[in-house]
Design a protein around this nucleic acid. Structure first.
Lengths: 139, 139
DNA sequence: CTTGAACCTCTAGTCGCTAGAGGAATTACA
DNA sequence: TGTAATTCCTCTAGCGACTAGAGGTTCAAG
């Protein structure tokens, strides 16, 4: 199976300019070209791009993905670093969730105190934003 | 109370270059200057900056904050738009939490399947990243 | 063979800051 | 009052991870 850049984009869900960007950043190899200078990709390019996409969706940085791709080139090495990258990401995701939950609580409190009908001068949303003392969070 | 830019930074938790950036972006007014061209802020500048900071901490975009500041200049208008901005933000925050929770689940599954001791070729983390079929999420 | 979609490169813009250079003003202390 | 440390000034450039657009070329279908 041979893909044009657009076909590859459809097959992986990565947009065309993003594919070119990944190539420029060295995450994927420059593919072969047609006589007319257009990119043509193969199955293994599609697999690599799917790997990248999945990692990005999981919140991995391009840096982390670059590391993983580098590691995958040495399949005989122990996978301790692979494990660590995943674990670090998990810690970060959990922290983000915690933080967002605190924000959710405060936003819910703020938003529910407003019926949208009184003048701005009396609006509790505005008051809440002006005055941080009501918050329990540490933001 | 008069603040130098550094004192204002300490008082609000907004970093010095960020204050200058907000000024350049028109979120805060250019303050008065000393003879030697240094910025000097007053209480109301501090309040406005605290408002901005609080909004940013709640995840509001600079755009949304700009809108709110604009609205606050018309304290007699009804606060329906204020309410809508807060409600929209709440919806977004909840969506972000949902999404992150799905990622957390997948990352936990991936990370727990790896003890860090086997070769990369056999690593489940790498396999999971290469192959999206095991995921239940829609990412 | 023509037409229209998809492709090419290149530059610049997005958001919300952050870092650094190179120099001037202010403040604290002797 | 002198001087040294700190803070301040402007300006430009960089970050991550793309996205948009201009202006031109190639490909594939009919």
């Amino acid at each position: 199976m041979i893909y044009s850049i657009g076909a590859l984009a459809r097959a992986t869900g990565v947009k065309v300019p993003t594919i070119r960007y990944y190539e420029a950043e060295g995450l994927i190899d420059p593919p072969i070209r047609t006589e007319g200078n257009q990119r043509r990709y193969q199955e293994r390019d599609r697999e690599r791009l799917a790997f990248i996409r999945h990692g990005r969706d999981l919140g991995l940085s391009m840096e982390a993905i670059r590391d993983l791709l580098e590691l995958s080139a040495h399949p005989e090495a122990p996978c301790a670093r692979v494990d660590r990258i995943a674990a670090e990401q998990l810690v970060e995701v959990r922290a983000r969730i915690e933080r967002l939950k605190r924000l959710e609580g405060e936003l819910a409190r703020i938003a529910s105190s407003c019926d949208g009908h009184h003048p701005i001068a009396d609006c509790n949303v505005m008051k809440a934003l002006s005055d941080h003392r009501h918050c329990d969070g540490d933001h």
